[in-house]
Amino acid sequence: MEPVRIGVVGAGDISPVYLNAITRSPALDLRAIATRDPQAIAEKATAFGARAVSVAQLLADEAIELVVNLTPGVAHEEINGAALEAGKHVYSEKPFALSLGAARRLADLAERRGLLIGSAPDTFYGSAHQAARKALDAGAIGKPVFGTSFLGLPGLELFHPSPEAFYRPGGEPPYDAGPYYTTMWINLLGPVKRVFSVSGAGKSERTILRGPRQGTPFPVTVDTTFNTVLEFAEASVSFIISLDVVVPTLRPGELFGSDGILAMADPMFFGGEPAVIAPPEPRMGLVTADQGFATPNRHDHTGRAVADYRGAGLVDLALAIRTGSRHRTGAEFIVHSVEVMEAIVRSATTNSVIDLESTCERPATIDLQSDAALIALTASPFDLAASAWAH
């Protein structure tokens, strides 16, 4: 397969992960990296065998087929739209857009131009989430009734050297960490029908805790805790996401069914230890090693070895461009996912139940035979030994 020629827009904290994923995959060919100040990224571009260019230069380059958008979320609609207008396919970091209207406009533009779009997160491609999906589909817990997910953090300033954007409109938790959870649930249960949410905030000001600006205060202008009910056709899910929990607390997800309980892995990673609890049998861990994207390739912030193959969705899109296959984060999936994010925030703002307008099919499961090319062409963007040293 001829590699898909790629230009990346944005060179922030997440860019090394994508640049590794692109340059290590035989399905992808990195040509250029663009920012507002190309000279500032010249060294990084050279290290990855690419040119440092302006956004306008990248979009005008006829050799580039696919734009990977790594800019902040508030810029995604503009950059994604400009790339489509320039005749490029688009793969974007989440969120693809900040509203249903914007997502629909971009999806319609792509369709009119005969272009494909894709979006992160792609962690549901991972072995743990695929094993959970297949166990559910096989009837391991009977009829699903309700689910829960909880993510509580003291704040993103613990991890990010420039956290201000996460505390402004468009950076709220449902748009940032929230998509990992909502896409996990859509993968399991299908499209969301209705949303109700309440929200609040614990602090009006926070302080940068790492990096060169450590100690710098900044204002909080949005709510930072969202308590949400997502209603699906077969079940409902209680989802709490908060940046006001003083001790990091993670309960990735449990789906309670008529005959058992499905315990999910952390949706921010590809691997994990999902399990089924179906009395009188003891808790049974699900086999994940035979699902693809299972081998640990980095360490998380606690030092635990985890599987993290960010870029699998990008390779899936590249295969769709070259072979005509159907990738898993296409326009329908993107539009619905964006509407769910927006509905969580809008429901809390308006104190109302939001009936969703869009829908989508559940993404196809990963099959070792039919998806052999996807698995083989997706490179690890991390080095396990190096991440252990860094940790």
Rank of each mutant, 00 (worst) to 15 (best):
313 G>K: 05
350 T>H: 12
144 P>D: 14
33 I>V: 13
60 A>N: 12
67 V>Y: 00
185 W>T: 01
373 A>L: 14
186 I>D: 01
384 L>K: 06
192 V>C: 04
239 F>Q: 11
355 D>P: 00
78 E>A: 14
279 P>H: 08
37 D>G: 04
266 D>R: 06
46 T>P: 03
288 T>W: 05
136 L>Q: 09
26 P>I: 01
342 E>V: 01
104 R>V: 11
341 M>E: 11
97 A>W: 08
130 Q>M: 08
103 A>Q: 11
349 T>N: 14
319 L>K: 03
30 L>M: 10
76 H>A: 07
90 V>E: 00
317 L>V: 05
19 L>H: 05
337 S>Y: 02
348 A>L: 02
234 E>V: 14
152 G>Q: 07
302 T>R: 13
167 Y>P: 06
248 P>K: 13
67 V>E: 00
351 N>M: 04
181 Y>H: 08
51 R>T: 05
124 F>E: 05
47 A>H: 05
167 Y>F: 07
110 A>M: 01
31 R>N: 07
37 D>Q: 11
350 T>A: 12
87 G>V: 02
315 V>H: 12
221 T>Y: 05
109 L>I: 14
221 T>R: 09
356 L>E: 09
62 E>T: 15
263 A>Y: 10
286 L>V: 01
331 A>N: 05
66 L>P: 07
130 Q>L: 08
319 L>A: 06
15 S>C: 02
343 A>M: 05
206 R>H: 02
257 G>A: 09
139 G>K: 04
391 H>R: 15
328 R>P: 15
182 T>I: 09
357 E>Q: 13
128 A>R: 11
70 L>N: 01
198 V>L: 11
227 N>V: 15
203 K>I: 10
259 D>A: 15
372 A>Y: 04
360 C>H: 10
318 A>K: 14
289 A>I: 08
346 R>N: 03
171 G>L: 11
67 V>W: 00
363 P>N: 11
177 A>K: 08
328 R>M: 12
244 D>N: 15
280 P>C: 03
345 V>R: 06
175 Y>M: 06
321 I>Y: 04
369 Q>C: 01
134 K>N: 09
215 G>H: 04
181 Y>M: 08
113 R>H: 13
238 S>D: 13
214 Q>H: 08
79 I>Q: 00
214 Q>L: 08
6 I>E: 03
121 P>R: 10
275 A>S: 12
128 A>S: 14
216 T>N: 10
39 Q>D: 13
303 G>L: 03
78 E>C: 00
56 A>Y: 02
7 G>L: 02
298 R>K: 01
210 R>V: 14
198 V>Q: 09
292 G>M: 09
181 Y>D: 09
56 A>E: 15
277 I>H: 10
256 F>P: 00
287 V>S: 13
277 I>S: 12
153 L>A: 10
369 Q>L: 10
132 A>Y: 12
236 S>D: 07
122 D>T: 10
288 T>E: 14
318 A>G: 10
99 S>C: 04
204 S>P: 09
222 V>F: 06
145 V>I: 11
99 S>R: 12
235 A>H: 15
289 A>M: 04
